Amino acid sequence: MMNNNILEVRDLKVSFRTYAGEVQAVRGVSFDLKKGEVLAIVGESGCGKSVTAQTIMRLIPSPPSIIKNGSIKFNGKTEITRLSNREMEKIRGSEMGMIFQDPMTSLNPTMTVGKQITEGIVKHHKVSGEEANKRALEILKLVGMSNPEGRMQQYPHEFSGGMRQRVMIAIALACSPKLLIADEPTTALDVTIQAQIIELMKKLSEKTEASIIVITHDLGVVAEMAQRVIVMYAGKVVEQGTVDEIFYESKHPYTWGLLRSVPRLDQDKDNELVPIPGTPPDLFSPPKGCAFAARCPYAMSVCGQIDPEHTVLSETHSAACWLLHEGAPKVERPVEAGGAAR
Rank of each mutant, 00 (worst) to 15 (best):
I6F: 02
L7F: 06
L7A: 05
E8C: 09
E8L: 02
V14A: 02
S15H: 15
F16R: 10
F16E: 05
F16M: 12
R17M: 11
T18R: 09
G21L: 03
E22C: 08
V26M: 11
L33N: 13
K34M: 14
V38I: 14
V42K: 10
V42S: 02
G43A: 12
G43H: 02
E44W: 05
G48I: 12
T52Y: 10
M57C: 08
M57G: 02
R58Y: 00
I60N: 10
P61G: 08
S62K: 14
G70F: 06
S71M: 12
I72E: 11
I72F: 13
K73M: 10
E79R: 10
E79C: 02
I80E: 07
N85P: 02
K90G: 15
K90N: 15
G97I: 06
Q101Y: 06
D102L: 05
D102R: 05
N108P: 04
P109H: 04
T110C: 07
M111D: 00
M111I: 00
V113N: 03
T118S: 14
S128N: 12
G129T: 01
E130V: 15
E131S: 13
A132N: 04
N133Q: 14
N133A: 07
A136G: 07
L137S: 09
G144S: 04
S146F: 00
S146M: 00
H157T: 03
G161I: 05
G162F: 09
R164E: 00
V167W: 04
A172Q: 05
A172S: 09
K178M: 09
L179S: 12
I181K: 13
D183K: 12
D183G: 08
E184Y: 04
T186E: 03
A188N: 03
Q194A: 10
A195P: 00
Q196K: 14
E199A: 15
L200F: 01
L204R: 08
L204D: 02
S205N: 15
S211A: 15
I213R: 12
V214Q: 03
D218L: 09
L219H: 01
G220Q: 08
G220E: 03
A223E: 07
A226I: 03
M232L: 12
A234I: 12
G235N: 07
V237C: 10
T242S: 15
D244I: 12
E245L: 11
I246Y: 11
E249T: 11
E249M: 10
K251Y: 02
T255W: 06
G257R: 09
G257Y: 08
L258I: 02
L258S: 03
R260H: 07
S261P: 03
P263Q: 06
R264D: 06
D266W: 14
Q267T: 15
K269C: 12
D270T: 14
P277S: 07
D282M: 11
S285D: 13
K288R: 13
C290W: 05
A294K: 14
Y298I: 00
A299W: 01
A299C: 05
M300D: 04
V302M: 11
C303R: 11
H317N: 11
A320H: 02
L323S: 06
H325P: 01
G327M: 08
K330Y: 12
P334C: 10
E336I: 09
A337Q: 04
A337I: 07
G339F: 00
A340C: 09
R342C: 06
